[in-house]
């Protein structure tokens, strides 16, 4: 375990764990147009962090519970005829605002706020690393188990019903996975940039993919390159690690679309 004593190694492994879990989940977020939903869930995480600190429970647990509550609440409200984007706008930003205000009531942690908003990947401990990889493993296992049903439900709800698949149950699986990813990614990219890690790598991968599985694999590669490369860049340029990772992901996205513009269109 001596390798894990190096904080850069721990940081890289943490980034990889989040990138791998974010690839399949982020693909669903893109396919099902849930980007804003992901944002709202992530922003609820900061409120969870504040509550966890106030109650002296693990931050991971607080973020997980609040993210889950937000995701379930938003799903339930969406079924009642609210305009989804308006409602998510209300929920996402009020959760963030209430979270920030709540954190300010805790004098001892005021200094750490940036760490929760933008991540603090260089401070990942061995325990954090274990939590991240267990969380990522759970998400990957959950999505692999439900893969075919999730994909069918994504293509069409009635198509799913006709195959004996309940789309509401599959939506719940995604909601659960999303809350898990939010909880494990707070340390790595922070609540403000989680949605970016979910959306940008799959969007980049879309350019070169012809099947859903191909897109997930490429998204994993893009995310991993962004995480490890971004970390390296942050070290070299002395920039904040979380935002640098997202910047690199965005540059990859841009390059992918430029390459596609140059390549002749596929038949």
């Amino acid at each position: 375990m001596t390798l894990l004593d190096d904080f850069m190694v721990r940081a890289a492994l943490a980034g990889l764990g989040v990138a791998l879990a974010a690839a399949p989940l982020g693909s669903f977020v893109v396919w099902r147009r849930m980007a804003y939903f992901g944002d709202a869930t992530a922003h609820a995480g900061i409120l969870g962090v504040a509550l966890a600190l106030a109650m002296s429970v693990p931050i991971f647990a607080g973020a997980l519970v609040l993210a889950l509550a937000m995701a379930l609440g938003a799903t339930a409200l969406a079924g009642r005829g609210f305009a989804m984007d308006t409602m998510l706008g209300v929920l996402a930003h009020s959760a963030l605002a209430f979270g920030l205000v709540a954190v300010s009531f805790l004098p001892s942690v005021r200094i750490d706020l940036m760490g929760y908003l933008f991540g603090d990947i260089l401070a990942v401990s061995k325990t954090d690393l274990a939590v991240i990889w267990i969380g990522a493993g759970l998400v990957l296992a959950l999505l692999a188990w439900r893969w075919s049903a999730l994909l069918t439900a994504t293509l069409g709800e009635d198509l799913a019903y006709s195959c004996g698949i309940n789309p509401a149950r599959e939506r719940l699986v995604l909601t659960l996975a999303l809350a898990l990813v939010v909880a494990v990614a707070i340390k790595v990219v922070g609540v403000l940039l989680i949605a970016a890690m979910l959306v940008i790598p799959p969007a980049t991968a879309r350019v070169f993919s012809s099947t859903p599985e191909g897109m997930v694999l490429r998204a994993g590669v893009c995310g991993a390159v962004a995480a490890v490369g971004g970390l390296r860049l942050a070290f070299l340029l002395d920039t904040p690690a979380g935002p640098t990772i997202v910047c690199l992901a965005a540059v990859l996205f841009l390059v992918a679309y430029l390459i596609r513009g140059v390549l002749p269109a596929r038949a």
Partner: peptide, 12 residues
Amino acid sequence: PQKLPLDPTLPI
């Protein structure tokens, strides 16, 4: 089904 709207982000 009558129609199956495919999201353009989903390659298949």
